[in-house]
Design a protein around this nucleic acid. Structure first.
Length: 605
RNA sequence: GGAGCCUUAGCUCAAUUGGUUAGAGCGCCGCCCUGUCACGGCGGAGGUUGCGGGUUCGAGCCCCGUAGGCUCCGCCA
């Protein structure tokens, strides 16, 4: 970018070759080193640092004024590029061979008392979020923003190269019954009615396929009114992709190519293609999770065959009831603390186990309350299958498949944290999880819900099961892409036939009237020449988080909200003027909502 | 809705496990310092230990409650 007046170069530009030039720089005072006589300033802009030196013998007046400079003042200096005195060069700085001797200096903006220092660690996230615009100057956040840009740019470039076009879809949209709670927007022009902010552009992207777009993508804002987490914000961004006349293989190849382009652009690394694939049954059976972290071992081992006729009632009973017996071997963890042991038991109970059976191998002995019930054959089976050695801790779960796998999966992850098993933090383990179940029974609602969403296609060979009402066995043409135990994207091939879609709505317990009022447009669209189609949505925030090595998506968003969904900087959500509510035909319920309390914010103009 | 951890100066943290006047570094203010690069030196200001209650001769520390923050479960793909 050319600059007119404010500066001639950025703060990471000048080198030896520029010595003698007269330049103008502008930026923030990073640090001052005031020697009483000579004063050094590290001037910072987003590109880097340049040392500026004020010397009384060059300009007494300037040197005097420079004493008042403090960190984060914004200044502009014009001066001569000079070599540093021999022996005072700074090899740590790219500009460390030179310095600027100003003949002019103006303070563009004075920084008053700082809420915290830019160059020190700060853990008070409350304070950081309140002064987010200030926190963004810290190198780490500045880097994250640029990394995010590199990711979205690589995404757009790659998808463009594959013939995809970016299409925007509405933010003011329609509430749908399935999925997360919607954010609602009252309509002034149709009082009493509401828009909903989109949880994802799902229906729109399918309708774009009906519209003949064939290859669509969008870097799309999505909104879900649910509780927050380190990796969940009420508004977040998806890389949303949909294509016509595709099979899962097409989506896999496209996604892998895109991720390769992203990691190449952002991190200059080549990721290994193609990704491994696990079915949902394999992933959960082996790792106790549908988003397995395979950067460490400790896999779940199935012991059903070995204990089918066991005299140990707990195991035998679980198997007789159609359940499973599984175990993990936490290598060299026999000496865990009481606290750790209690915590693991607590996890087991939280996720539905009655208890947590264990064997500690100490001094050549199997220390365990249950081992006395095992036959020699059973012990030998354990020893072989679990590779039991001195110092190991074996943990068992005997329950329904779903419970036993989840319990051990959660414990596996916690033990990996306790033992710090993930040593290589640069490792990237991508994989596909395929063949998800289509439906899941909700005991709470006493009905079947879509695991993915209601538009997901059942696998062709499982459609018959749908008619037989064997809902738990129906697999979906759906897939997730997982990186290091984090689900970074998911998608499916969709239903494009009105009768199949209608059948699906029926299974989900949506009445014929509701189908028409809520999805009539979609069903009609499917009667006007709908191509087979499918796609995927990638969680951009989570992806960038992993690219940056961060542990929270808040650190890769410019202006995130805190745990309670509040923006501490702008103090939103906030009261609104009563007139705004009146225009919308909204009355706050007395007592419940924090209705007008006398102390209101002044009316907006 | 539930569980865990946390809350001491503007920031990051200490406080000998219940003992006299709550300290340090950075930052801030003042003075000194002409080659530093986390410059240095001397001095100073800055605290209702989140808030409320209790136990005790005595509480930053123990107990109860409460607020806020973060992490997790529920919830959410």
């Amino acid at each position: 970018m050319t600059t007119h007046g404010y500066r001639t170069h950025d703060c990471n530009y000048l080198r030896k070759i520029d010595i003698g030039k007269t330049v103008t720089l502008a930026g923030w005072v990073n640090v001052t080193r005031d020697h009483g006589g000579v004063i050094f300033i590290d001037l910072r802009d987003r590109e880097g640092l340049t040392q500026v030196v004020f010397r009384p013998e060059e300009s007494a007046e300037l040197a005097k004024r420079s004493h008042s400079l403090r960190s984060e003042d914004v200044i502009q200096v014009t001066g001569r590029v000079a070599p540093r005195l021999p022996g005072t060069e700074n090899p740590k700085l790219p500009t460390g061979d030179i310095e600027v001797l100003p003949s002019e200096m103006s303070i563009l903006n004075k920084a008053h008392d700082l809420p915290f220092q830019i160059d020190t660690d700060i853990h008070n996230e409350d304070l950081r979020l309140t002064y987010r615009y200030f926190d963004l100057r810290r190198p780490q956040l500045a880097r994250n923003l640029r990394m995010r840009h590199a990711v979205t740019k690589a995404t757009r470039d790659y998808l463009d190269s594959q013939g995809f076009i970016e299409v925007e879809t509405p933010i003011l949209s329609k509430s749908t019954p399935e999925g997360a709670r919607d954010f609602l927007v009252p309509s002034r022009l149709t009082p009493g009615k509401f828009y909903a902010l989109p949880q994802a552009p799902q229906q729109y992207k399918q309708l774009l396929m009906v519209g003949g777009v064939e290859k669509y993508f969008q870097i799309a804002k999505c909104f879900r009114d649910e509780d927050l987490r380190a990796d969940r914000q009420p508004e977040f961004t998806q890389i949303d992709i949909e294509a016509s006349f595709v099979r899962p293989e097409d989506i896999y190849a496209l996604t892998e190519g895109m991720l390769a382009a992203i990691f190449k652009a952002a991190r200059k690394i080549d990721i290994k293609l193609p990704f491994d694939r696990l079915t949902y049954r394999e992933a959960v059976g082996k790792y106790g999770s549908d988003k397995p972290d395979r950067r460490f071992g400790m896999e779940l081992v199935d012991l059903g065959e070995d204990f089918r006729a066991s005299s140990f009632k707990v195991f035998r009973g679980a198997l007789d009831a159609g359940g499973v017996v599984k175990a993990i071997n936490a290598k060299s963890f026999a000496l865990l603390t009481i606290g750790q042991s209690d915590e693991l038991t607590e996890i087991a109970k939280t996720f539905g186990a009655k208890g947590l059976a264990f064997i500690k191998v100490e001094g050549g002995e199997w220390k365990s309350p249950i081992v006395k019930f095992f036959s020699d054959a059973e012990k030998n089976a354990l020893k072989t299958k679990l590779n039991v050695e001195e110092g190991d801790l074996i943990l068992f779960a005997a329950d329904k498949w779903e419970v036993a796998t989840e319990v051990l999966g959660r414990i596996r992850l916690r033990i990996a944290e306790m033992q710090k098993l993930i040593v290589d933090l640069t490792k990237l383990d991508f994989l596909w999880v395929t063949d998800f179940p289509l439906l899941q029974f909700s005991a709470e609602e006493n009905k079947w819900n879509a695991v993915h969403h209601p538009f997901t296609r059942p696998k062709a060979e499982d459609v018959a099961l749908l008619d037989e009402e064997k809902f738990s066995e129906v697999r979906a043409e759906a897939y997730d892409v997982v990186l290091n135990g984090v689900e970074i994207g998911g998608g499916s091939i969709r239903i494009h036939e009105p009768d199949l879609q209608d059948k699906m709505f029926g299974v989900l317990g949506i009445s014929p009237q509701d189908r028409q009022s809520m999805f009539g447009h979609l069903l009609r669209a499917f009667q006007l020449g709908a191509p087979p189609h499918g796609g995927i949505a990638m969680g951009l925030d989570r992806l960038v988080m992993l690219v940056c090595g961060e542990e929270s998506i808040r650190d890769v968003m410019a202006f995130p909200k805190n745990n309670r969904g509040m923006d501490l900087m702008s103090q939103s959500p906030a009261d609104v003027d009563p007139r705004q509510l009146r225009d919308l035909g909204i009355k706050l319920a007395a007592g419940d909502a924090r209705a007008p309390s006398g102390k209101e914010s002044p009316p907006k103009k």
